[in-house]
Simulated scan of single mutants.
Amino acid sequence: MIYLDYAATSPMTEAAIDVYSQMAKKVYGNTSSLHDAGGKAHVLLEEARAIVADKMGVNRDGVVFTGSGTEGNILAILSLARGGKGKHIITSAAEHTSVHAAMNTLEREGFEITKLSFTRDGVIDLAELSRAIRKDTVLISIQHVNSEIGSIQPVKDIANIANEQGIPYHVDCVQSFCKLDISQFSHKVDSITVSAHKIGGPKGCGAIYINPHRRIVPVFPGVTHEKGIRGGTVDTPAIVAMATAVEQYAYHLDKHWRLRKQLKEVIRDSSVEWIESHDAQQFPSICGLCIPRVEGQYVMLSLNEENICISTGSACDINSASGTKAILAMGNSISKARQFFRISFGEGTTEQHIERVAVHLKKLALI
Rank of each mutant, 00 (worst) to 15 (best):
I2F: 03
D5R: 15
Y6N: 13
A8F: 04
A8H: 03
T13G: 14
I17M: 10
Y20P: 02
Q22I: 07
Q22F: 07
K26D: 10
N30W: 14
T31S: 14
A37R: 12
G38L: 09
K40V: 11
V43M: 07
E46F: 14
A53M: 06
N59A: 10
G62V: 12
V64Q: 08
F65L: 08
G67N: 10
A76E: 05
L80D: 06
A81E: 01
R82A: 00
K87G: 00
H88L: 05
S92G: 11
A93Y: 00
E107P: 00
R108S: 12
G110W: 01
I113Q: 00
T114M: 09
L116W: 11
L116A: 09
V123E: 03
D125V: 07
L129R: 06
S130W: 00
K135D: 09
D136Y: 00
S141Y: 00
H144T: 03
S147H: 03
A162V: 07
N163P: 06
N163E: 05
E164M: 09
V171A: 07
S176I: 05
F177K: 08
C178E: 11
D181W: 06
S183Q: 10
Q184H: 11
H187N: 15
T193P: 15
G200I: 12
G204A: 13
N211I: 08
V223K: 04
G232D: 08
D235L: 14
D235N: 15
P237V: 07
A238T: 07
A243S: 13
Q248D: 13
Y251N: 13
L263V: 14
E265K: 12
R268A: 15
S270T: 12
D279F: 03
P284Y: 10
I286W: 04
C287L: 15
V294I: 15
V299I: 13
E305H: 14
E306F: 03
N307R: 00
I308Q: 03
I308C: 02
C309E: 14
C316A: 14
D317F: 02
D317G: 05
I318Y: 09
I318N: 08
G331M: 11
S333P: 10
A337C: 08
F340S: 08
E347I: 13
E347R: 11
T350Q: 11
E351L: 13
R356I: 12
R356W: 01
R356D: 07
I367C: 10
